[in-house]
Every structure is written in structure tokens, then in C-alpha cells.
Design a protein around this nucleic acid. Structure first.
Lengths: 207, 207, 207, 207
DNA sequence: CATGAATGAGCGTTCATTCAT
DNA sequence: TATGAATGAACGCTCATTCAT
């Protein structure tokens, strides 16, 4: 029998362990095909124990997604809001934050889960849009508006479609899960190149 | 002979109907959660009939993916190979072909299936990489090389990372499946903006 | 694999076999404690087959009850309605019909199921009251009224409480299931005695 | 000593509370379907505590039955044994004791438990027969014999089948659990009518 | 003693696959 | 070839029982 979790901290540890195990199994097999037996085994608990912490398999999936929010963007948001730096530099901060964010394999797996299962579980799509996507888009739009207003940016594409800033990161995540073993991709360098292109396309060049 | 031909045509029709139905169901529920009962019902055949045409549920999934290859890129590939047009224009052709390719909801569903299930079914990942991805990357690389050699393109980012050309399309597909209902996205305009940015960044022509 | 039931008659046979097996198991273990594995084994089918015929375990229980209605009382009802015989004799017919009805061990088991599980499954209580109880009470009341009107019966107890006519049968059923092995009870003789008492009490003829 | 006594009293209180709660839950859901979680909650103790007082769920069921013996019949037995009263009057006492006994809803629930689960748990059947049934039958037989011997009773039906005296009470219990909500039944009046019939059938009438 | 977290066997139900017709 | 009844392994979830605290 696993040590009983009587304090709140122990409880939280136990939940984390189960979520971690579930993420591994869900990522490997897909949510539907994953078996809670395997999750339990991976977490080192009995099957029934999972239900002491999560109401259902689906609830466990949602817990995985909702507890793995990157603080990354939030920090950047803070830093950017009142920064006097030029827009180009702020954009660089954002892309670098994204790059850092998808460095962690665990977070990458969570993101892939969102992409794979989000369509079937509206709660996940809603949550992710509300907590992550919306913030990211707002942030990019703010920077784009600033750059546009100051004359630093020559066009408004990323103001209209801030998603363009994040698209390569999305591709990197998917690539790492599906095609990495066939043709490796240096996600970091990819985002560097992306940033270079973005910067060159947006910022006014010296005469 | 005629009888054989008629039978063969009927066979093909039947397979198509099953694949079509399966795509609908798989997309709606996810591969694992989808039930062949529903597929059979949607295809208007008995459950056992499916097994006369496909060896297993997984085989059916692979058949869906492998038979829905866009001829689009192949055509473009033909057109581009010996074209005397400037690289920027060729790139435009490619992005427009991509835009056209993801216009069709059916193909979008197939692509989402690849993204969702590709990780679990190497055959799908392999196939998709070999038949679609590799072609696309090679095509973009060829254009990039041409543009670079002629001095039309000032940098080599998309030669090193041709994936950057496709990333927004990928995002559009995923967005349409997960976030469309929350926040609509005009995929066509998105790709237009993407092309503008890309062209400007690569050619660095005066604003 | 059990022979496929393609005709309606075969289907009905299969259903009957499953119901029969379920009755055996439910009676032996109680509805809740009974396992469908055992039912399937007893019926000679695979577990999944049960679900081709019954929507759920509970549905199977209801099917057992609703398909084992004694035609007995119905026949008596017919016979009694327009009979010119004295009420005492009609009452005798009813009690004898009851006696015959609980002779069959299978029907006795069904009745015990109703008594044991009826409290938890209102549908069963409703059905049984509507299809069996109500008929029986109405029948007895009609006889009692007739006897009373003609002066044959000197009192109205069984008109007010027709249940009194059936009570010993109920006891016999329960006794046979719980106490028979400890102290046997001759249900037939019990009902005979009951009828004697009843007749004497109602007609008050000299000893 | 005092400490021991207090502890013992507390122990008994605790057991009573658990039995009471268990009776409620077992009655509502049936023994098998009842959950000890609910019993514990209803008793205001932790689930594990139940096992400090009862060896198992089944043991708890048996405890409920064996501790809820009506003192009623025992009292009557005492009163009847050496009474000079006529048999008819003694019979009246017995039936009234029965009526009083099933007035209490708690005892009615216990009786229904015995009827529902007695078939599956021989210990319960045995106990109930030994402690309740046998006494009741012996008592009625004694009265019947007395009445017969004295010439007060004209026949021996209830000597041969003393169960007939109790049958309506059994029916009343079952009715209250299953059919009451559909068609109410006045148990007290039912037993009154039963007694009237019995008395009229048995006792010699004045010339 | 009391608690309630943990266990793990168990069960109702599902569904991909098979096969008799 | 097509059907759909039958199969039986599998899985999510439950809950009586145990045991560390």
C-alpha cells in the first residue's frame, strides 16, 4: 500500500504523480486508447486510488491540461506591458518565451494532448483558449499596435493575425511528436529563423 | 470483362463510401472512440461488410489517409519545376495551392486525423511524410535555392526551414477544429498575410 | 458460437433461454449479487449476447417479470364473470387457481423476485400491481359482492380486504424459499384449510 | 468499573447507531446494492469504524435481524400460557400483538429484510425461524389445541396450519413496501377483518 | 479506538472481430 | 458477396475490506 496522503501537501504530491503518469500514458496511447490500469501502474498506485483524486478519466485529462499552464507567457506579459523597448525587441521576447515554453517535453506533450483531444472535449478547448491563446494573441496585438503606432512596424499583418507569430511553434510541437523520428527538426533554430523573417518583414529598415 | 469492370467499379465505390463514412465518424469521435457500428450505419452497409474491404479498423484509418492525397501539390510541383517565373511568384503559387488544399473540409479532417493519430500509428506518419511532407519541403527548398541563387531572395531561412512556409496552414487546420467555434479565423486571409510577410522578408524590397 | 437466431422464433427461444437462466441466477443470488457472467454461462451464450436481447441487467429483470404472467387468473376471470354458480364455489375456483399458480417452482421464483426486488424497482411493482394484483382483487371483490347480494355471504370482510384471500398463498411462496428446508409446508393443504376457514366464516353455515 | 461500564454503554450505543443506519440503507437499496460508505455516513462514523464492531457487511445484516426481536410475542406467550380465558380471546390477543408488532416501521423494515435476504443467508432464515416463527407457531398451536379440547373451536385448521394466523400480517408488510404508494392498505383494519373471519370460522356459535 | 486513504478483485457494459447463413 | 448475430477480451468504475496513522 502506498503511503497514505494525509496532509494537503502529500495529497498534492499524489495528484501530481497521477497526473504525470496519466500524461505519459495518454500521450503514448491517446486518451481513448489509454488504460487507467496503466496509469495506475505508472503512478505506483492502485487503480481505485485514482478515483480518490479524480472523478473520472475525462476529469483526469482536464486536470492535466488545466494544471500545466505555462507561467512563461504571463511573465512576458508583465514585462512587456510597460516596457519602453522597441516593438521588435518585445516581439523577440515573446518568440523566445515561446521557444522556452516548448523546450520542456512535458509541456510539449500537454500541448499535443490539447491539439489531439481538444476537438472532442470542448472544456479543454475553452480552457486553453481562455487561459493561453487569448493572452498570447492579446500580447502580440499590443506589441503590433505599439510598433505600428510608433512607425517602427511597416505593416499590420500580425495585428490582424497574431496567430502567425505562434504558428511555427505549433508546427514544431506536432513535428516533434510525429515526424521527429523520420526527420529531426531543430525547434530552436526554426523559431530563430522565424523571428528573423518576422523582424525583417515588419521593421522599417534604415534608409 | 465488362462484368469484371462493373464489379471492380462497384468495389471501388463501396470502399469509397466506407472510407467517407469512417472519416466522418473518426473525425467526430476520434479514432479510438469511434465505433465501427456507426461507420457501417453511415456507409449504409453491414458491420461485417467493412471487413470485406479493410483488414481492420486501423487499416481503414490508414486507407483514409493514403487515399486522400492532395493532387494539388503534385500539380504545382510540375508547374514549378521548369518555370522561368521569379521565385517569389512560385512561392505564391505554393502558398495558394496550400490555401486551396485546406479549403476542402474533408481534406482538413484528414489532416487533423493525421495530426491526432499520426503519433500512435507510425505507418501514417511515415506515409504522410513520404508522400506529402517530403514533396512540399523539397519543392519549397527548390524555390528557395532558385531565389537565393538569382539574388531575388536575400536570405536562406526557408531553405533551412521550409516548414515555415507551411506552419500557418497547419495552425489554420487545428484552429478550425478546436477554436473556430470560440473565435473564428479567416484561413484564407491568414495565408494571404503570411505570404505578404514572407515575401517582404525574403525580398526585402523597399517599403 | 451458439447457433445464430435469424428467425423471429429463434430469437424468441434465445430470449427465453436467457430469461430462464437469469431467473435461476437472480433467484439464487438476488438481483444485485447475481453476475451476468453466470447468467450467460447458464444460458449457454457469451456475455455480450445478453445485450443483443436486453438493454441492461435491470431490463432483463423486468423482462422476466413481465413475461411470466400467469394466464391462470385470467382464465378464472373469464369463467367466473357470467357463472351462475354460488359465490362460495367461485371463491373455491379462485383459491384453487391460486394453488395451481404457485405449484410451478418457476413461477414461485418469479413471485419471490417481485417480492424481493419490487421495492427497489418501481416498474416491477407497477407492472405487477396492474397486471396481476388489480385483477385478482377485482375478481374477489366481484365474487364477494355477488355473495353478499344474494345473501350467501353474511359479511363483507373480503370485499373490503380481498387481499385476505391471497395472503396464505403469499406466505406459502415465501415459506418455500426461506423456511422450507427447516420446516416443510404443504402449500396445497394450507390453501385447502384456508378455503375451509374462509368459506365457513363467510357462509356461517352450521358446523 | 464505572469506566468500563461507560465504555461498554458507549460501545452499545455505537453499535446501535450503526445497525440503525444500516437498516435504513439496506432497506432502501437492498443488502447487496447498499454501500457501507452510506451506512457509515448515516451512522456518523468512519467507514473503518464499522469493522471495529462488525466483522463484515453480512455480519452487520445478521446483527440487525438478531437484535430486533420483538419482545411482543414473548410477552403474549407468557400471558397466554396459564390464562383461563377462552381460546378465542387468546387468539385475539395474538393477532393484536401481531398488529402492534408491525405497526413500527423499523420492525417492518427488518421483517422485509428477512423476507428479501433470508433466502440467500441461511443464518438469517435459521435465526428467524428459531427465535420468532417457531414461537409464534407453537403459541397458536397451543391456543388451537386448547380451543379444540374445550369444544370452543369447531375445527383444527389453525392447529394444522398456524401459519394461517400470520399470513395477513406478512401480506401487510410486503404490501407496505411494494404497493402502498399505488394502493394504500390499512394494515390494522385488515388484521381486524382477518380476526373477525377467523373467529367466526372457528368458534362454535350459540345454538 | 477511530479514521479515511489505499487496495484490488469484481462487474456491467462495449465493441472489434469472426463466422454461420 | 453481404449480412448481422455471436463472441469474449477489455475497460471504466465501484466498493468491501485493510491498515498506516
Amino acid at each position: 500500500m502506498a503511503r497514505q496522503a494525509r496532509t494537503e501537501a502529500e495529497r498534492e504530491n499524489r495528484m501530481r504523480a497521477i497526473r504525470k503518469a496519466a500524461l505519459d500514458i495518454f500521450s503514448a496511447k491517446g486518451f481513448s486508447a489509454a488504460r487507467l490500469d496503466d496509469v495506475a501502474a505508472a503512478a505506483g498506485v492502485a487503480k481505485g486510488t485514482i478515483y480518490l483524486y479524480f472523478a473520472s478519466k475525462e476529469d483526469l485529462l482536464e486536470a492535466i491540461v488545466t494544471t500545466t499552464i505555462g507561467a512563461t507567457l504571463a511573465e512576458v506579459e508583465q514585462a512587456v506591458v510597460a516596457s519602453p523597448a522597441p516593438a521588435g525587441q518585445l516581439l523577440r521576447l515573446v518568440v523566445q518565451a515561446i521557444a522556452a515554453g516548448i523546450q520542456d517535453p512535458e509541456r510539449r506533450r500537454v500541448l499535443h494532448l490539447v491539439l489531439s483531444e481538444g476537438a472532442r472535449f470542448p472544456a479543454i478547448g475553452d480552457f486553453y483558449h481562455r487561459e493561453i491563446i487569448a493572452h498570447g494573441l492579446r500580447l502580440v496585438r499590443a506589441i503590433a499596435a505599439k510598433g505600428h503606432a510608433s512607425g517602427e512596424f511597416v505593416s499590420d499583418e500580425i495585428e490582424r493575425f497574431p496567430q502567425l507569430v505562434f504558428a511555427p511553434a505549433l508546427l514544431a510541437i506536432i513535428w516533434s511528436v510525429i515526424f521527429e523520428r523520420i526527420e529531426p527538426l531543430d525547434a530552436h533554430a526554426l523559431l530563430e529563423a522565424h523571428l528573423d523573417l518576422l523582424t525583417r518583414a515588419l521593421t522599417r529598415r534604415p534608409a
